[in-house]
Nucleic acid binder design. Structure first.
Length: 216
DNA sequence: AGCTGGATTTGCT
DNA sequence: GCAAATCCAGCTC
């Protein structure tokens, strides 16, 4: 359960900061997804920063498109994209309006409504896997393009909202290179894009990017 | 525990 | 056309 005092919404100013400041500060925060069947709450344990138009790994790198328009809007809103013909992934827009930075929500612990999450994540072998990975997280919460652009800083429980939770102390935050992103190639990565909670069992395993082989 | 191929839409070259 | 901010089943070690 989430303590009532930890249920206050994060203010929009929280997201109106440099993305590398916001990303580690998101760990331990709680996303509340309201569905027709009831609420699902998720405590964030792993996130990944995308630094606007200067970042070759970002969807915003080549400018605005139909897909990524929300990234160029105000902070605190949700950017949802569809990929690999099958999956949705979810970001929170950061920085001032127009900068197009965002934080990809990579993994978390379901702290409320696990029974609802299990209905959508039938292949999960245990509850730690319900939201272990960005597409699994979106699936567990029932998030798709319909939520693209939703305001996560709303005062009351709307379709999706992020609340204070219990921030993770700095000495329990770990960081490292991105996983699964083209151009991030294994070593020489100067920026600590990815942040996670030390020793948390819901954090997704590191995978280096693997270029796909051509079809026959 | 670790690797491989397949699923399948969207955006960019 | 091809690669993608991925996941899963099925296989081998």
């Amino acid at each position: 359960m989430i303590a009532p005092s930890d249920r206050t919404s994060l203010p929009r100013e929280f997201f109106d900061r440099p993305v590398l400041e916001v990303a580690p500060d998101l760990l331990g925060r709680v996303l509340i997804r309201t569905t027709p069947d009831g609420p699902i709450a998720l405590r964030l344990t792993e996130v990944e920063a995308y630094d606007g138009p200067n970042d070759p790994g970002s969807h915003a790198y080549r400018g605005r498109t139909t897909r990524n328009g929300v990234m160029f809007g105000p902070p605190g809103h949700v950017y949802v994209y569809f990929t690999y013909g099958m999956w949705h992934c979810m970001n929170l827009v950061c920085g001032p309006e127009g900068e197009a930075s965002g934080v990809l929500l990579r993994a978390g612990e379901i702290v409320e409504g696990a029974e609802l999450a299990r209905l959508r994540r039938v292949s999960a072998r245990n509850d730690k896997e319900l939201a272990k990975g960005p597409a699994r997280l979106a699936t567990a919460l029932g998030v798709d393009r319909a939520l693209d652009g939703a305001d996560a800083c709303a005062a009351d429980d709307t379709e999706i909202r992020i609340v204070s939770g219990t921030p993770v102390p700095a000495d329990q935050v770990r960081n490292g290179p991105r996983t699964g992103v083209a151009g991030e190639g294994g070593d020489g990565d100067a920026h600590p894009w990815r942040y996670w909670v030390a020793d948390d069992p819901t954090v997704s395993p590191y995978r280096a990017h693997v270029p796909r082989r051509r079809r026959s």
